[in-house]
């Protein structure tokens, strides 16, 4: 079966801050990395490849440097990489992002199984996978913890649903969002890196897409608008104790006694 994994490059440190005085955002200094939640989806795809030789493609949407994330995936064992990049796609919310990705997937060739991570560490919405499936008109299942069996036309998986474990069979093609910690992700192979060098990545831009209506992409295609960003409210009733550590331990003890926890 043809497998495609959707990944994202995220900031190495996710901590964007607000300057208290100017109200401006302060950029984190560290570099970028592959979204850690995507590693489990990649591993699940590569497990299937190890079993039956299924080709695994990887696709991302981002600025040109997101190429690095694709290279990492190829060095792990993925066969083909796609990078969706174009200024037209900037400022996209969940709807526009998922629509853009779905357009990219349509250009990446016929897929049987599309795998996503649970969420990203920079957006934290955990919504893009489900919206991509809707745009593609295929079923999806979130919180998948294991792939039980598969054949030419379907895949059977276990997924978490609050306090239930649901075993479900989905016809192919379908999209699965995999939970974290369900396998042990592999590292990029040094040997593959040496062999492949700078990986071959297919770049997809707006001009490559079927849907040429610019109003479906980027800021224009985004129903939600960020009105403003602001630092979180501070707690003015707090009490801060400083001093010798044994005094602080005694303080802890007296707070807990006063509040009847000990």
């Amino acid at each position: 079966m043809n497998i495609l994994v959707c990944v994202k490059q995220v900031p190495g440190s996710s901590a964007v801050k607000v300057d208290d005085k100017t109200g401006l955002l302060i950029r984190p200094k560290k570099g970028n990395k592959l979204n850690p939640y995507d590693l489990f989806a990649l591993q699940a795809a590569l497990d299937i490849k190890d079993c039956d030789g299924s080709p695994v493609s990887v696709l991302t949407m981002g600025p040109p440097q997101a190429m690095e994330a694709i290279s990492e995936c190829l060095w792990m064992g993925c066969d083909e990489g796609f990078l969706i990049t174009d200024r037209v796609f900037g400022g996209a919310d969940v709807l526009a992002t998922s629509y853009t990705i779905s357009q990219g997937i349509r250009k990446a060739g016929a897929q049987d199984l599309i795998l996503c991570g649970k969420q990203t560490t920079d957006g934290d919405t955990a919504q893009v996978g489900a919206e991509v499936a809707e745009h593609l008109g295929i079923p999806h299942l979130s919180n998948v913890i294991s792939i039980v069996r598969r054949d030419e036309s379907s895949v059977t998986v276990k997924a978490l649903q609050e306090n239930l474990i649901v075993t479900e069979t989905l016809e192919l093609p379908c999209l699965l969002c995999l939970d974290a910690d369900i396998n042990t992700p592999r590292l990029p192979s040094y040997k593959r890196m040496k062999e492949m060098g700078e990986a071959k990545v297919k770049v997809l831009t707006f001009a490559d897409f079927e849907d040429q209506d610019k109003s479906h992409y980027g800021l224009k295609g985004s129903p939600t608008q960020v009105q403003k960003v602001f630092p979180p409210e501070k707690n003015d009733n707090r009490v801060l104790y400083k001093g010798a550590d044994d005094k602080l331990a005694a303080k802890l003890s007296s707070i807990l006694k006063e509040r009847k926890f000990i």
Binding site: D124, A130, E131, E134, H135, Q161, S222
Partner: peptide, 23 residues
Amino acid sequence: ATNVGRSLAPRVAARLHTGLTAD
């Protein structure tokens, strides 16, 4: 924002081409 809600809300929001703000 349960497992069901996180799966269903984006699906329906995408179908209706409208916005969804998580969490």
